[in-house]
Amino acid sequence: MEGELQPALWAHLRGLADAAEWAWREPDQGLWEIRGGGRVFTYSAGMCQVALDRAAALAEQLGLPGSTARWRAAAAELTRRVLEGSWDEEAQTLSAHLDGGGVLDASLLALPLRRVLPATHPRMVATTAAVAQRLSAGDGVLYRYLHEDAPDGIAGDEGAFVLCSFWLVENLVQQGRLEEAHELYGSLCARTSPLGLLSEQIDPATGAFIGNFPQAFSHIGIIASGVSLARATSDATA
Results as ranks from 00 to 15, higher is better:
Met1Glu: 07
Gln6Phe: 12
Ala8Phe: 12
Arg14Thr: 04
Ala20Cys: 10
Glu26Ala: 06
Glu26Ile: 00
Pro27Asn: 06
Gln29Ala: 12
Glu33Ile: 01
Ile34Tyr: 09
Arg35Cys: 13
Gly36Pro: 12
Gly36Gln: 02
Gly38Tyr: 08
Gly38His: 08
Phe41Glu: 01
Tyr43Arg: 02
Gln49Glu: 05
Val50Met: 10
Val50Cys: 13
Ala51Thr: 03
Ala51Ser: 13
Ala51His: 11
Ala51Asp: 00
Leu52Tyr: 09
Arg54Asn: 08
Ala56Thr: 00
Glu60Thr: 07
Leu62Arg: 09
Leu62Thr: 02
Leu62Asn: 10
Ala69Phe: 02
Ala69Met: 00
Ala69Trp: 00
Arg70Thr: 03
Ala73Cys: 03
Ala73Lys: 05
Glu77Pro: 10
Thr79Cys: 14
Thr79Leu: 14
Leu83Phe: 12
Glu84Lys: 09
Asp88Ile: 04
Glu89Met: 05
Leu98Cys: 09
Gly100Tyr: 08
Gly100Asp: 08
Gly102Glu: 10
Val103Glu: 15
Leu104Ile: 03
Asp105Cys: 08
Ala106Tyr: 11
Ser107Gln: 05
Ser107Tyr: 04
Leu108Ser: 10
Leu109Ala: 12
Leu109Glu: 13
Leu111Ser: 09
Leu111Tyr: 12
Leu111Phe: 12
Arg114Trp: 15
Arg114Thr: 04
Leu117Pro: 14
Pro118Thr: 09
Ala119Val: 06
Ala119Pro: 14
Pro122Ser: 10
Arg123Ser: 00
Val125Phe: 14
Ala126Lys: 09
Ala130Cys: 07
Ala130Tyr: 05
Arg134Leu: 02
Leu135Ser: 03
Ser136Arg: 08
Ser136Glu: 01
Ser136His: 07
Ser136Lys: 08
Ala137Cys: 06
Gly138Ser: 01
Arg144Tyr: 02
Glu148Gln: 11
Ala150Tyr: 00
Pro151Arg: 03
Pro151Asn: 02
Gly153Met: 02
Gly156Pro: 14
Gly156Tyr: 07
Gly159Gln: 05
Phe161Leu: 11
Val162Phe: 15
Cys164Ala: 15
Ser165Gly: 11
Leu168Ile: 02
Glu170Ile: 00
Glu170Arg: 10
Val173Phe: 14
Leu178Phe: 09
Glu179Cys: 05
Glu180Trp: 03
Glu180Phe: 04
Ala181Tyr: 13
Ser187Tyr: 11
Leu188Gln: 13
Cys189Asp: 12
Ala190Val: 09
Thr192Cys: 15
Ser193His: 12
Gly196Val: 09
Gly196Cys: 14
Ser199Val: 08
Gln201Trp: 11
Ile202Lys: 07
Gly207Phe: 12
Phe209Val: 01
Ile210Arg: 15
Asn212Phe: 06
Ala216Tyr: 03
Phe217Gly: 03
His219Leu: 09
Gly221His: 03
Ala224Trp: 01
Ala224Gln: 09
Gly226Asn: 10
Gly226Glu: 13
Ser234Lys: 05
Thr237Trp: 14
Ala238Pro: 13
